[in-house]
């Protein structure tokens, strides 16, 4: 009896020590935020969409304020050029210069894919911080793409979170999320985000190339390339108004 108790006690101690080696999920999420978060951002990016008949590259510039507001202007290809999108809270407006129309994208339309990519407008609009939506727990360590990572399991705090759980691989050194899997309630893998290229910019580690894939359908996914980003930029308020869509 005593022998068992000792073995048992030892095991407990070891596992407690092991667990103690893992940082808290919340802390890691906090560090991620410190790296990438900023109040204002201006970015220039490319989105490469693979269709069944070839790929398209959409170029855009975005002005982002916090989580609630963003303004995007499309630059290329020519058909898309000068189309603008404005997100204000949970409303998404788009302006089409060829028709001079300001259109509200709502409800059902938000579930449609953006430009034929693997993302929906809803995915694009996702604004709440992971910290707010999920309980995070470190469940292990793994190498990803040559980088040592913490593996975190995120479980939704509330019922109305779109993806019930996620798994993220966070670079231990740089606190950049390198891979993210999003799961349905039943546990099926729905979407996967993989970061292909991380660079140091403006004192931060920035993912420059991201592959976003809908795991349920065939296809290679949609690639994002971040060309340029300014943090804590000065963005005048009028940009985030419907009027600016038409300028």
């Amino acid at each position: 009896m005593k022998k068992h108790a000792r073995t048992y006690g030892l095991a407990l101690l070891i596992s407690a020590l092991a667990e103690a080696q893992y940082p808290s999920g919340d802390w890691i999420l906090q560090k991620i935020d410190e790296n990438i978060g900023s109040d204002n951002k201006i970015s220039h990016s490319l989105m490469i969409i693979q269709g069944r008949r070839g790929s398209r590259t959409v170029e855009s510039r975005s002005w982002i304020q916090g989580d609630e507001k963003s303004f995007t202007e499309y630059l290329a290809p020519p058909r898309e050029a000068e189309t603008k999108m404005l997100k204000l809270g949970d409303q998404l407006w788009t302006y089409s210069p060829s028709t001079d129309r300001t259109i509200l994208i709502s409800g059902h339309m938000l579930r449609q894919s953006v430009m034929g990519s693997d993302l929906s407008y809803e995915d694009l609009m996702e604004d709440r911080k992971l910290k707010q939506m999920y309980d995070a727990r470190v469940v292990g360590e793994e190498d990803y793409d040559g980088r040592a990572c913490w593996v975190l399991e995120l479980t939704a705090r509330a019922d109305n979170v779109a993806y019930h759980s996620r798994k993220i691989w966070v670079d231990k050194e740089r606190f950049v999320s390198l891979k993210e899997d999003r799961f349905a309630k039943g546990g099926k893998l729905l979407k996967r985000t993989e970061v292909k290229d991380v660079q140091r910019m403006d004192g931060r580690w920035i993912p420059k190339k991201i592959l976003f894939k809908d795991m349920l359908k065939t296809g290679v996914g949609t690639e994002f390339i971040l060309n340029d980003v300014q943090f804590n930029a000065d963005i005048p308020d009028y940009i985030f108004t419907k009027a600016s869509l038409r300028r």
Partner: peptide, 16 residues
């Protein structure tokens, strides 16, 4: 009235 649809290559189509 404005039609909002998808172009053949996948972009957003908007036409009056």
């Amino acid at each position: 009235a404005t039609l909002i649809s998808a172009t053949m290559p996948g972009g957003m189509a908007v036409a009056n």
